[in-house]
Nucleic acid binder design. Structure first.
Lengths: 188, 188
DNA sequence: GTCTATAATATGATAGAC
DNA sequence: GTCTATCATATTATAGAC
């Protein structure tokens, strides 16, 4: 029976995620996605009948599930703000391989003017991170407005550090940004 | 004589720049570049014999010239660090239209693993900005190591704010990042 | 469920008329 | 210098065998 699954959904989505992170949505041709997964293009269509757009959506959904499992619980843990943000930093460091990986949220962002399903999911994910980081800042003594500003700055530092690290070919930029994050949230 | 130039080099590069900034390198098809400039594909090849790669390179070179004219002189001006960084922030605000424009340096970044001529130019541009911002921090009293860290954080904030602004559809994120920049450089 | 084969379209690029 | 026409290839997508 050679018609068995060559690759499970989890590993399949992992390979697709890696390709989208490396080359972006436009750069990820079906040929590239086929090479990365070991499945022929027609097999990819069997698993994702709506093609590349669906692959990107499911990759985003899987990433959201990973955040639900590994990030949000840490931020909402029953612990001090310092230890929660410390755990967050550690998870981010692993998530982006110390700055050697790009952010899916950046690489999947739709062109200006276009509104895609992925764009919606990305916006929602940013918002959820903002809310969760905000709560840590509030628990550290910030008022609502301060907390939102600090949380936003953390997202900005993360995204910016990944862009600059890639642009300059220096992953260490990311580590230095991570080091600033606790002070930003716990400020004062 | 209908064989005259329909569009000057400056405007042509401007239109190409806008397209690359909006949709990125992969997303900028010759059809899109043709639409944006009003020149047919074959005319674009007449102006840029090496095709899209050359267009991207010349767009990068033009952007470097704009920085030479409008940004680096401000940072190196014979004025206080505070007024120099204030001028920088004002120019950046205009340059990115208050957060409604993406950064060319991010949108033209080559896929991971590939080394393009554009990638080299981008890395160099980041480095030059880093050096110029660093000098402002030094003049504000920072030692060499501190100054490089502060300059790097400014680049990170700029790039990150543009990504988050686009991702969340909220240009105001960029304005709030700009507001943080003077304190980062002048710190203490 | 995966594959080979194929189709329709888009893309990067060139030739030659004006 | 710009255009129409064309080409080779890449890309997205489908049909049908196993």
């Amino acid at each position: 029976m050679p018609q068995v699954r060559k690759i499970g959904d989890d590993v399949l989505l992992e390979k697709l995620t890696q390709t989208f992170k490396d080359v972006g949505y436009e750069g990820a041709s079906l040929a590239a996605l086929s090479d990365a997964t070991g499945l022929k293009k027609s097999s990819l269509y069997h698993r994702f009948p709506e093609g590349k757009a669906q692959m990107a959506q499911e990759v985003m959904a899987q990433t959201a599930r990973v955040l639900d499992a590994e990030v949000f619980p840490q931020l909402a843990a029953d612990a001090s703000p310092a230890s929660r943000i410390g755990a967050f930093v550690a998870v981010m460091d692993g998530f982006y391989a110390g700055g050697r990986q790009s952010c899916l949220l950046n690489m999947l962002l739709p062109p200006r003017g276009e509104a895609t399903a992925c764009g919606e999911a990305i916006s929602t994910t940013f918002q959820r991170l903002l809310d969760a980081l905000s709560q840590v800042a509030r628990d550290a003594g910030a008022d609502e407005a301060q907390a939102r500003l600090r949380a936003e700055q953390v997202l900005v530092e993360l995204q910016g550090a990944l862009v600059v690290a890639r642009g300059m070919g220096d992953a260490a930029v990311f580590g230095r940004a991570l080091a600033r994050i606790p002070a930003i949230i716990l400020q004062g």
